[in-house]
Design a protein around this nucleic acid. Structure first.
Lengths: 182, 182
DNA sequence: CGGGCATCTGACCGATCGGTCAGGCATGCT
DNA sequence: AGCATGCCTGACCGATCGGTCAGATGCCCG
């Protein structure tokens, strides 16, 4: 036997994550994932029920954290506190799961349209509203969406930046960028 | 005959643009584009040499504007001026081509790896450096990349926002978010 | 009226997709 | 030694991919 099964499992997840970040879920084939790992397509499907199961496992923990953040935002006592909780919570999530956020946002529609994540489909909108300080002003909403998308899409590019540098940089950016709640 | 050829040509581009924004170039099939237009796959290939020609035509004008912006940035007399030219130029480009920027950034690697756009592959990096005020400080680079990616990825969501509202909102956001050059 | 052209379609091509399955190999246990 | 199990593979499946092509249809012009 060549490698331990758990190592192979993790290798497949890592290779799939890189490919999903580069070409999206639909633009990635099982054959490509297998070639990156150095095994056969059938081996990939030995470890995972199907292609969608790979995506589901990759995003399970970040999405669970997103759900918890959504609850903490809902429990905030004011729009200003909700914005602060949202900003710090999302930055922490993005820094912790920077590999996964590189493709997570792009897959939101597909993930939330059917089980097992369909009950979470309103979270991105609630998060955006919290970031905007619950303001209906278009400028606040524009700033909120740009910052959320920008953080999500680029964290994958800061893989090598230490958390002690990335986290404060993102927090400072978010503070400057978002319109304060008055 | 059903519709004028120029109308069909434009319908195909519009349908393809929407699909590319949703699923990426690789995640979109000619069959899906044809179904959205209401014609056959062969009709799509009657109007365009191949699938890649559709993408090339969609991005030709925004990429040409990006190239012109790159030249104006290179001609700036200081990092502060380069940052201002980059910020205003990129916002204008994103507002003007908001449908295309929704998928353009995601296709950059694929577009720049081979003709006809391979000579432009360093433009995104130069743009990011101008946004960062040519600072090597990680926080400046983080802010630059997050803002660039955020604007590119979300402009498609502001299709219905009038330019007179979107443009100042983005410019104000960019001014707040970027670290000033000292 | 007939020819030429533009536009379009269904059938078809080879290649690849996601996924299945019989079988091989190594290990561990009796 | 033989059996069970885990891990893996190549061959294969039906479906779809990007793309081609012969032929149909309608319009325009001489």
């Amino acid at each position: 036997m060549t490698r331990a099964a758990p190592e192979r499992h993790d290798d497949i997840l890592a290779a799939a994550g890189r490919r999903f970040a580069q070409s999206g879920y639909r633009g990635t084939s099982l054959q490509e994932i297998a070639a990156d790992v150095g095994c056969s397509k059938a081996a990939v499907l030995y470890h995972f029920a199907d292609k969608r199961a790979i995506l589901a496992e990759l995003v399970a923990r970040p999405i669970d954290q997103l759900r918890e953040l959504d609850e903490r935002i809902a429990a905030a006592s004011s729009p200003a506190e909700a914005q602060r909780v949202a900003a710090e919570g999302f930055v922490d999530l993005a820094v912790q799961f920077r590999r996964e956020t590189a493709f997570l946002r792009g897959e939101f529609p597909g993930l939330f349209q059917q089980p097992p994540f369909s009950h979470l489909q309103h979270i991105p909108d609630r998060l955006a509203r919290a970031f905007a300080g619950h303001s209906d002003h278009p400028a606040a909403r524009v700033a909120a969406l740009v910052i959320l998308a920008g953080i999500a899409e680029t964290c994958g590019e800061f893989i090598d930046l230490p958390e002690a540098e990335l986290r404060p940089a993102l927090l400072a950016l978010v503070r400057r960028a978002l319109e304060p709640v008055n």
